[in-house]
Design a protein around this nucleic acid. Structure first.
Lengths: 210, 210
DNA sequence: CCAAATATGTACCGAGCGGTACTGATCTGA
DNA sequence: TCAGATCAGTACCGCTCGGTACATATTTGG
């Protein structure tokens, strides 16, 4: 049984993509349902029928954002060493938060770090998912300890926290209009800190045996 | 001619302090004028008479916040060397964004990184003032180059940007509930990056001549 | 060809928004 | 003692908010 009744006159994924952009630019509370429906090219009852409501639409937008705009982060995890993971993460993040064809910054931050009390679940949800990413990075670093490109005395959790803090700062800075190159420069300084504090094996060292 | 007419029945500074807390916790858009007036212990017409309106109240709240809660930053600038300035800034920031008697994070971030288009001036104002602080820090680093505790090849602007990025990340992280000690740990890693990337003279080196 | 099912579009809901008019209360200066 | 000035409190303004009722249009299954 394929479809019953009248087929919908819009592409649900494409409309969701428009919603991502509105939430990204204006934040959860700053984006009205009218703004969203207009940008999505549909009217409100269609929005409610297809996505459930404003908060559900936001959660779906964040999920889509994570799949597409945050792909670089999952790719970074595949780098062979912890140092290279961090280098890829911070450099790619500088690019991701300054795409000329997208809103500035990062949806996870722009979405809402602070909310009215009635919308606290929204900012809480965003904070939780950021911390989940941090946990995944800590796991990656723990693997790096096992694999030997981080020394045994390295603290995976503290290092992951530092990297996430820098990337959040990059996002905030990007939203203020700071250029991609300036953010990349900051990434290099952070990378120096990561290397110094972790004692990570560097790429060059990895290829020439001592 | 001291005062004419009925004296106001509340302390304008104390009420402004309450407004700081509401904006800090809920953001500019998430804080309604009713919320504010209630927390300030006054009613709306008094609020409008004393502060002008919601946006004016917000700007006054930010000014008060800068004078009181950001005092540690101006104090940090008085440290003798660039390294010590950064150490004080990042360590004190970790404390400032996790005060148990205050909202978590930093008003300049919580206030609103993203806004409805009609409130864009608010987030723009916050971004501008953050960048002004970054400029002041760059000036402090430029002085450090002259004074010799930063090498001549150091880039004051890039270094200041890195430090501000880290402190913004600390604020975002704090709002997500991360502990003071965890943020201080991140400050130490950032400090290592600053030292490595800048070639700054370290406190110990400063005291023992080569 | 009709009934069931689903989508669209208009027009609307109660609630809360930022902001204010207006009445009364309380002070100072003459 | 009373006029002028300022503040406090109630009650309201028009508007937008998130969300929906309802009539209509378009599809499939029988």
């Amino acid at each position: 049984m394929p479809q019953r009744g009248r087929p919908r006159g819009f592409d649900a994924d494409e409309a969701l993509e428009r919603a991502v952009e509105v939430f990204w630019r204006q934040g959860y509370e700053g984006a009205s349902v009218n703004d969203l429906a207009e940008a999505m090219g549909i009217n409100k009852p269609s929005l409610y029928a297809a996505y459930g409501g404003k908060e559900e639409l936001f959660r779906k937008a964040v999920a889509r954002y994570a799949e597409t705009d945050m792909k670089y982060a999952r790719d970074a995890f595949a780098q062979p060493t912890a140092y290279e993971v961090v280098a890829a993460l911070l450099r790619e993040n500088a690019i991701a938060v300054t795409r000329p064809d997208r809103p500035l910054g990062c949806l996870s931050i722009q979405g809402g770090v602070a909310c009215a009390t009635e919308n606290a679940p929204v900012s809480g949800f965003l904070a939780t998912s950021r911390l989940a990413g941090e946990g995944a990075l800590a796991d990656r670093f723990a693997r790096a300890v096992v694999e030997g490109d981080l020394p045994v005395h390295a603290d995976p959790v503290a290092l992951a926290r530092f990297v996430m803090i820098v990337s959040e700062g990059q996002a905030v800075h990007a939203a203020a209009g700071v250029s991609r190159e300036d953010l990349r420069q900051a990434a290099e300084i952070a990378l120096a800190g990561f290397a110094a504090a972790s004692g990570a094996r560097m790429p060059e060292q990895a290829t020439r045996p001592v």
